[in-house]
Nucleic acid binder design. Structure first.
Lengths: 189, 189, 189, 189
DNA sequence: AATGAATGAGTTTTCATTCAT
DNA sequence: CATGAATGAAAACTCATTCAT
């Protein structure tokens, strides 16, 4: 039931927004009464925290798997991360939407738990860049932290416009972004 | 007065969020009564629409100025657009925050007015890329629409992390992102 | 309107209790909507605080008038205070009931305002006793603080049993208590 | 278990109030589930009734022991009753608090059981006074019913202010009140 | 005896909006 | 232009109670 409530709330939060979705709305769709919600969650905000935590933890896990693969170069790992992020929109689009859009409805108490994990995801990308710089895969004249923000910007922003139903596949988008990032958009003669 | 209300509401919307800010909150800070609000605005949502419209129109104007400058190459124009966007965070950070974050509180009726202008901003970037491809400045093997989304992702995402008070200036960030985009992050031997 | 709400709420709090009376109950009887309540009061608890404060301040005022009368002996003043307290049940019985019974529904924040005034009322009785001891009216071998608690106990407890409609008048009850206190209940031969 | 629930609920009712304490609160502290409560009690109100009944019955028993002691004078018996009441605060303070403060949360159905016993306790004091009047121990010019209310007022009110941890012992307080009642507070020359 | 899930009616509170003055 | 009062619909949350297991 707890899982059911989370799933349905993600669906509604993604569609209408956190503030616009009432507990009533969620429970109505599940054909159970409002009181039931509070048997499983302490508050609406706790539910949102759980959604965030579950999502970022899965994200970190995936990232870890990719990064710790010794058979891949840094460039390949970078592609894998970007691909995974965009691929997620298809399968976990709603979760991602909520994760990116509704973070500001968490109060400090919960942010203290969620934000460090979010930061770590970005930091791991930075570490990957740094490693790539050391081993000669990446340019030495670009600051890895800013670059990591740029890369995540490209990928995360997809949630605002990418439609899985469109004519361009998630893999193709990832490839284009990867190409753009690796070789730049300038024409080389 | 209308301008005063808009300014104060932007301030509060940016800080606390649209839903979290009541008309009362806004008017309290202006030391006028709630009723006054409805003399100047039909509804809270109309206020939000006005904020969005004002912002995107100024953005489009700036963009137009940059693009229509015949003395600049496409690459220079691209840099100018990125720089302008990031520079805005410093001067218009609150407006930008509201613009990016609170779009989903506009109902269809208002989205019909705002969204086309938003799209046009992105489309203009795409047109710039296309022009650059034609004149040999940009690579021909990358689809301009996806690239334009990527570029805006890099720039817009800054609103989530860029602190004007930090040790890296807006100009420097813009330069790094520009470099990254133009030449790519790969080390070339 | 604020006064009307207070009056009606005192009536209902006295009859049914603070917790048992909902804002709805109060406003229903006044034929206005619930929202109106929050135009006049910040919360239900603030209303209770206002009731307490209004009551204890009137009590202190009356007490001051009695005590500062130079034409009365301490014994006469003591009688006046007791009489006033019991007399109040007839006219202000509901207020008194709420004042005595519902104090524990005020949170610390409000208790800090109300309790010092309550204490002062008791302390003033103690000061009166002390003065009477000095001028030879009262026995020197009884501690004035405990005595003051005893006196207030006798008077305040009336709220639990005294019925203004009964066959004994408020004045008669005050006289009996006064006699009992002054000369004791022992038969002297 | 039933006894355990009663004990813990008295503790919590005394501390936070009847309405403010939920069944959940009580059972949480006992590390059992809410459902268990309804195996032992029909309702929350029945629990409160049981607490009241248990308390007043013990009180009546004690009173009976004191009153039926043929070796004591009425004055001695009166002292014993007052002492016992105040002494109770130390040992049974929480029970007493609930007994005095939460009576109004009992509905008529239960009041019919509890109130007669409460009244009887007071009436027994009245009977003691009447006996003392007959045998010449007490004044004949004071109505025994009102006097009994006064005596109980003095004693019961202690629950609102008497702190067992204070510097004055329960016995000393009882003695002072007894003296005050017997001989009065007036200075006799 | 005890549990765990669910209910439903109620509670306080918020707030966009209206409107006579 | 601006105010102050009122509305009404909805929100989050609480909790005594029930009941199958």
């Amino acid at each position: 039931m707890k899982e059911t409530i989370m799933d349905k709330s993600i669906e509604l939060f993604a569609e209408k927004g956190f503030k616009e979705t009432s507990i009533q709305d969620i429970m109505d769709e599940l054909h159970v009464t409002k009181g039931t919600f509070y048997y499983y969650f302490k508050s609406k905000e706790e539910l949102l925290k759980d959604i965030h935590l579950q999502y970022i933890e899965r994200l970190l896990e995936n990232q870890k798997k990719i990064i710790s693969d010794p058979s891949k170069t840094c460039q390949e790992k970078l592609f894998a991360i970007i691909y995974k992020l965009i691929q997620d929109i298809e399968k976990e689009g709603q979760r991602a939407k909520v994760f990116i859009r509704e973070i500001n409805h968490l109060s400090d108490q919960y942010l203290d738990i969620v934000l460090p994990k979010r930061d770590q995801f970005r930091e791991n990308v930075q570490l990957l860049i740094e490693e790539g710089i050391k081993n000669g895969e990446f340019r030495t004249d670009l600051p890895p932290d800013i670059v990591s923000f740029g890369i995540l910007g490209i990928a995360n922003w997809s949630y605002f416009w990418f439609k899985p139903t469109g004519k361009v596949s998630d893999k193709r988008v990832a490839e284009i972004f990867y190409e753009m990032l690796i070789h730049g958009i300038q024409q080389n003669n």
